[in-house]
Design a protein around this nucleic acid. Structure first.
Lengths: 352, 352
DNA sequence: TTGAAAGCGCTAACAG
DNA sequence: CTGTTAGCGCTTTCAA
């Protein structure tokens, strides 16, 4: 940067000590006269306190890190906008990283944040809890959004636990030693999926498939639960996150099981793939196959027929997560579960 | 953050001075023996140099800022992914801001970046060149992406000039005193729009409308040029950036000018609005109205009919911009113009 | 080749 | 209420 006025310049110009300037600018006590004077000089010099000095002094960078799998996925775009909105109103910077749903990249990004001393992070986790334990141990305040890290292999060291969320999923907390207690902001996947499956059932569908992607474990679990056993395992397939892989999964599913009559796509990328694959195979929606997609994205309405979706509040999710990570330290944050809503449009029809 | 090993710890443990450690870690000269020893100790202590100390010392934060209008717009998601990819390979952090296409928010974000001493910024500008001049004067290296700031009212102070791009648009550089010379990475809007208009003309369309949004000045200009005078001004309308406003603009256009037979949407949000508005008004695409949309986004193919688009390489644009901003300083970066491509799908038909 | 020392701009004790 | 001072972790002269 070019030469900018420092706190010293202001102090000198105002004829006071640097500490006084610092106090005035951070709302500390000062005589009205001094305060006014300092403020005037600061304004006149166009002084802007350098975050560099402050950060070093406080051994921490302000703001927060944000790790998402892919900004090309509209849902994460919404989530990011929520985080940014909250950060902006708090005047805090956001350091962004895109993991590509790759645990290795995620680790590298965590390392980068550590190096930057960004000690507050909102993450859509990709790796398992072992990826996160070290960072949390190192003092990072993290809030998970949209999903939770897969449970790592149990060890007798503590694991990342996400309190009541596990119960929500009907998973038992297993034997955890000193859980790390990471708060999370997620949608009520279980209810969302259950509602969708019931809806399809109500339409007469028996063979319902689930098309999942990375991080959809909770949704898959909810799906299994909703359809009840025995689960036809061939009807539960997953892509790896890329659009190509999602397409391949969808296409493979339709071809291997022409008897299925409905599909629940675990995310908008998978929904997109399902629509494309169905069209390619000349399957009509909803005549030949009904489709429910997780995520309400603007283009869901553009499809013909418009897609019936399980909407989750992406922006809110980001905003709430940012709030949590900022408030952490004062009160201990509790996880948040946001409601989903089945929005019925035109992509589901009665089973024929 | 928790207590992490500092350079001092490493120095002590290795029995050398801190300067030596610093040198070794930044690839300076050191005896093989010393180097090996330091490296070993550093690894053993899991030492990670703190960016805080370095930044303060160098009076600049590494990495780069990224300012986009809206991450919910898939195109900017692609752009951001490109920037992140380049930054990642350079190991640099990215500080993100979303301007909402609001010059005021943009200014605030610039201020935030200045405060953070982020001196390299990639921006999809919203404000005019006066918004940017101060930042650039303050020593910020900026690279514009996707669009250029509107020319501010001429003064005899220098203005932000974007060298050859203005010529590309057929604008004369007017009388500029010491242009600030900000490099930019943009798509060849002029060619893209021209190709689209010619294509529609070839289909027999005479009344072609342009549906623009914020920052589409160059596209509007290209459109005017392509249709040739006299331009029917009622056929050139703009939204303000929100989806609602885009919808209103599209709907208003269709209603006020039922005689139009083709629309060029200046961006994917406007294309979305056009599809929605057309459907609402019972206009069939492409029977009643042909549509070409700027931006190729995954869902363009999902529409029925699939949308004919002017594709621009969003990801490349981000990547190139990041490269430019990182290389700036060594060689003086030149602007880059990326090619567009008309991808013909199904949303245009012959004029009836 | 190496080490000692001087800060970068700021905040937080600690005196006055 | 205010000023002085001591660093935060690092890079970078400057000597040795």
């Amino acid at each position: 940067m070019e030469k900018r006025a420092t706190i010293k310049d202001v102090a000198a110009a105002a004829g006071v000590g640097v500490a006084t300037v610092s106090r005035v600018l951070s709302g500390g006590s000062a005589s009205p006269h001094t305060r006014e004077r300092v403020l005037a000089v600061a304004a006149q010099l166009d002084y802007r306190p350098s975050a560099l000095g402050r950060n070093l002094r406080q051994r921490r960078t302000g703001g927060m890190g944000l790790l998402v799998p892919d900004l090309t996925d509209t849902f994460y775009g919404q989530l990011a906008e929520g985080v940014l909105a909250c950060a902006r109103s708090a005047g805090e910077p956001v350091v962004l990283g895109s993991t590509g749903d790759d645990p290795e990249q995620e680790s590298e990004l965590i390392g980068m944040l550590l190096e930057q001393s960004v000690d507050r992070v909102i993450a859509v986790p990709t790796g398992d809890s072992d990826t996160w334990t070290p960072a949390i141990r190192a003092g990072m305040t993290v809030v998970f959004a949209d999903r939770l890290p897969a449970q790592a292999v149990q060890e007798n060291r503590g694991t990342v636990a996400v309190d009541d969320l596990m119960l929500l999923d009907g998973l038992s907390p297993t034997q955890q030693t000193r859980p790390l207690d990471v708060p999370a902001v997620v949608a009520d996947d279980r209810a969302g999926i259950r509602t969708a499956v019931r809806y399809l059932r109500g339409l007469g569908h028996k063979r319902i498939a689930f098309l999942g992607g990375p991080g959809h474990d909770r949704r898959v679990a909810a799906f299994r639960e909703a359809v009840g056993s025995p689960v036809d395992e061939e009807l539960v397939v997953s892509g790896t996150g890329s659009r190509d892989s999602a397409y391949a999964a969808a296409s493979g599913l339709f071809q291997s099981r022409p008897d299925l009559s409905a599909v629940v796509a675990g995310g908008n990328v998978l929904g997109e793939a399902a629509v494309l694959a169905a069209r390619e195979l000349d399957l009509r929606v909803p005549r030949d196959v009904s489709l429910v997609m997780y995520d309400d994205v603007p283009w869901a309405e553009l499809c013909s027929p418009p897609l019936t979706v399980i909407a989750q509040p992406g922006r809110d999710m980001g905003y709430r997560a940012a709030e949590l990570v900022l408030r952490a330290g004062s009160r201990k944050p509790r996880s948040v579960i946001l409601p989903t809503e089945l929005i019925i449009r035109g992509s589901c029809g009665p089973h024929r």
